Amino acid sequence: MKLSLGPVLFYWSRRKLLDFYAEMAEQPLDIIYLGETVCSKRRAMQLGDWLGLARELGSCSQAERVLSGLALVEAASELSSLKRLCENGELRVEANDMAAVQLLSERRCPFVAGPALNLYNAYALRELIDCGLQRWVPPVECSGALLRSCLRQLDGLGVPRPEVELFAYGHLPLAYSARCFTARAENRPKDDCQFCCQHYAEGMSMSSQEGEPLFTLNGIQTMSAGISNLLADYPSIADCGVDVLRLSPRSEGMAEVIRDYAAVCAGALPPMAVSGCNGYWHGRPGMATVEAMGS
């Protein structure tokens, strides 16, 4: 099974991004996703900067580089930027909005279907495979049972399976909104947010009235409070036919996370339990922690 590093979901400074990817270039990764998926106002890196970084990574790493697009396109300016990304001419693109699917399909460009596309069954997958889908990242709330059912259904339709990439580690991206939660929390209008989400390297924690961690607010994105970690579930994931495990970047400790996953992918026994949540994989609420079976 291959390992991928998903796009950075938080707003980090240009220096922090460059330092982070310099460290990631030394890790045993097969795929590295680059680009902004959450908010078009985050301009620490422009398309040319991402392409330049991709070239640098290509000179020192064997990992495939993929450009990720926005998950919520709201304005003509964002659509124009997305068009330029889809026409980059160098790298495969991860489509996180159906506008990207249309642009890539018109250009007959093979693409990755990101988790924000909400593909839950073989009939929807077949439509997008006809448009050029080559790798599918199921929505983060998909269970192992749903994934198996979907792939069996795809086989029954006589459609070749795309690569399947599972979101295995990190804060789960749950929802997107036209409103910016981080700006609102600081009593700022969205149009004059002053990039306040850059003050929160892993988002802003939100608790329930009882004081329990509930969500992580990241600009217009709502994420899980807990860290999803499917390392102990590796045997059941392998049985599902997953090809790639996606590790979502965090501000600290990613090298250790990658090494743990790489060791299990190389044949080491997975741990019996890990810190973090894995409820969605077992058909339970996402914040639940369920004992892994078959470890």
Rank of each mutant, 00 (worst) to 15 (best):
P28Q: 08
P28N: 10
D30N: 12
D30A: 08
I32F: 11
L34K: 01
E36T: 08
D49P: 02
W50L: 05
L53H: 12
L53V: 10
E56P: 02
E56D: 14
G58P: 02
S59K: 01
C60N: 08
S61T: 03
E64I: 03
R65A: 11
S68H: 11
E78M: 00
L79V: 00
S81E: 15
L82E: 14
L82N: 10
G89A: 12
E90F: 09
L91H: 11
R92T: 12
R92N: 07
R92V: 07
A95Y: 04
N96W: 02
D97R: 02
M98W: 13
M98H: 10
C109W: 03
C109P: 01
L117M: 08
L119C: 13
A122H: 10
L125T: 02
L125N: 07
R126K: 07
E127W: 04
L128N: 07
C131R: 13
G132V: 03
Q134G: 14
Q134H: 10
Q134M: 14
W136N: 10
V137A: 06
P138F: 08
P139E: 13
V140D: 05
E141S: 08
E141L: 04
L146Q: 15
L147V: 11
L147M: 11
C150M: 15
C150G: 03
L151E: 12
R152K: 12
R152Q: 15
